[in-house]
Nucleic acid binder design. Structure first.
Lengths: 348, 348
DNA sequence: ACGCGTTACTGACGCGTGTTAGTCGACCAT
DNA sequence: ATGGTCGACTAACACGCGTCAGTAACGCGT
């Protein structure tokens, strides 16, 4: 069985030195190689079925051309994240533009703490995108201090690491403004997650900002916490219904919103006739909810791309902004209506 | 700035040779190392913050400890696959048990054909799990012929490559038997995808088998094709409604089913009062559809695990079965009912 | 004839590790 | 004393490539 060909084999096949082969294969423009020599090398490589041995090249060049995506989330959180795959695709596409590949490392927060640290320290990856980390992650703090190429996907105030995120505050504000514009005044909020998560904090902040700008108080009795999945939305809505009244609700996650809508239905409240609902994320199924969900579109693919580009810039030591915010877009569908139509339908 | 420590540094710090360090770090049991020496090496490594340089170790050992997950699907297909992330988690967990990591390579079918081939040939990955390939993929055929470690996630008849899949035929059959057991006789079917996809073929075969076993013909007029997403289910259901009548439908995908249910609603048909619906996949949101969807649970995480284990066995040259089928489970919820209750509700 | 630059290469070192074939004592049976 | 075995280690090569420093040939102006 023939050994896999090495650059030395290509060199002797083409009648040049191994160095020349290396220059040709890496397409170095700073070295002059006459077209005919280049061609001779290329066709020799082709003939032999030569493929550079990537570990060897990593060793010699000191760069692995791999970026890691660390999923620092609970399994439930990952499974429920309907846009994660899109983000991954965006990341991979950005990586590919510079010949990088993406390694995915799912690491539950309660798991082995410094496991992704090894990815960098062993130079298995040239940089990391960290999704869903917590501020108190000790290994993350250590890595950040050592100036490793890291980009955080999300928000992590007080940490001097570049981050890429969706403008959660503005998106949530826009959602609530939509409800206000329809004439709603008692607007409840169910968060997408516990408020120790910054995305939940930010969306809640947008909710409060919108209310404040309209001269309305943000009442604690109108706020409940969701936890990524539909059951949590269902439970949160039941708590809200048992406690107070409202004519609209901003649910900071489409998935949680679906659970909440279910609870509304069970309570005999109709959407949007009795209660208007706005979600967040615009998951592919949102348009097929009953009623179709008005929501805030989150550019998942673009988010991944932005994170990838930022990380690659950081690896190549190009300067990057410390924080990138991507815009959101309000998608109006059937789950929101004016309060007047509510009176109409309750009269029926 | 101090260089990263190498095994040579650890060796001199511990007062042993580099070879001994290597033996200790790799925990080789076939070499006798007294506990005190082992401890001396370990604490020296600890003191210096030593982490083996993974490209170097890959070069020397000839193994990358990386497996690739190739997503040979269209972006829409990937985004719509609600269980993909779970499969990835299962794969990663299986990989971790043997110290492997997972590299994800999204490659649209119409993209660069032999791009994932390079992953193997350059020894960037020790093996591949290929998800959603097509039988006519030329580079896949070439790789299969060359005896590379490959496991296909799905069904690819006629190709001598190990594969891991869910028992689509049995699952679909069970779903339709459930409808038959309720008393339904005119049962339609909307596939999850075009029937060039083997998963769609298999589920359709299960549908036909169940009907056949009950002595019923499988009428072409009762069959429509879906295409991964909710809009396709919506369109397929509209075509069915325009063409024929039925009192139940098996939709071979929860996502497609949601679109179909929307079309039923628009046509004034109620679920399950007028039409019973069974889905497939049991996506996390299925329990929160209106009505909660009766469906066939697909063990996504276990599927990923099984694929990972099969691939690792293959890489380690342990014998593996050429085909592994995972069982499904029928989850009965609210979208199915007996025809008698249909008459009841239409009477109301 | 000479210096100088340019073109087109090449020799050899280094990257950090795994591993084979040994070395050197010490201990034991003969 | 001698041969042999075993434990504990090590020297040195191999892995395949990137890259620096260098060189030989050649042209060209003076």
């Amino acid at each position: 069985m023939p050994r896999r060909p090495t650059s030395a084999d290509v060199a002797s096949e083409a009648g040049v030195s191994r160095t020349t082969v290396s220059f040709v294969m890496n397409g170095r423009t700073d070295i002059k190689i006459p077209p005919e020599t280049r061609q001779r090398v290329l066709s020799a490589a082709e003939r032999l079925g030569y493929h550079p041995h990537s570990p060897a090249r990593q060793l010699a060049a000191g760069r692995s051309h791999v970026i890691g995506l660390v999923l620092r989330q609970t399994p439930e959180q990952i499974a429920g994240d309907a846009v994660l795959v899109d983000t991954l695709r965006g990341l991979a596409s950005a990586a590919r533009t510079e010949g990088f590949r993406v390694l995915v490392e799912p690491l539950p927060p309660n798991g082995p703490e410094s496991s992704f640290e090894a990815l960098l320290r062993s130079q298995h990856a040239d940089g990391l995108v960290i999704s869903g980390p917590r501020t108190d992650d000790p290994s993350l703090l250590a890595l950040a201090g050592e100036d490793f190429p890291i980009v955080i996907q999300g928000n992590m105030p007080g940490l001097s690491v570049a981050s890429v995120d969706v403008d959660n505050v503005a998106g949530a504000r826009r959602a609530v403004e939509h409800l206000l514009g329809l004439g709603h005044r008692r607007i409840a909020c169910i968060t997408n997650a516990a408020v120790v998560y910054t995305a939940a904090q930010d969306r809640l902040a947008g909710y409060r900002t919108a209310l404040g700008a309209a001269g309305l108080p943000a009442l604690d009795e109108l706020i409940e916490e969701g936890a990524f999945d539909a059951p949590s939305g269902h439970a949160a809505m039941k708590r809200l219904l048992a406690r107070t009244t409202f004519d609209a609700v901003f649910v900071a996650s489409d998935v949680v919103a679906l659970g909440a809508i279910g609870a509304l239905r069970e309570a005999g409240r109709r959407v949007p006739a009795d209660v208007s609902v706005v979600g967040f994320d615009d998951i592919p199924l949102a348009a097929y909810f009953d009623p179709p969900l008005t929501t805030v579109r989150l550019p998942a693919y673009e988010l991944g791309q932005a994170a990838g580009r930022a990380l690659l810039d950081r690896i190549a030591e190009r300067s990057i902004p410390s924080r990138t915010l991507l815009p959101t877009e309000l998608i109006v569908r059937g789950s929101t209506a004016t309060p007047s139509s509510q009176r109409l339908s309750t009269a029926v």
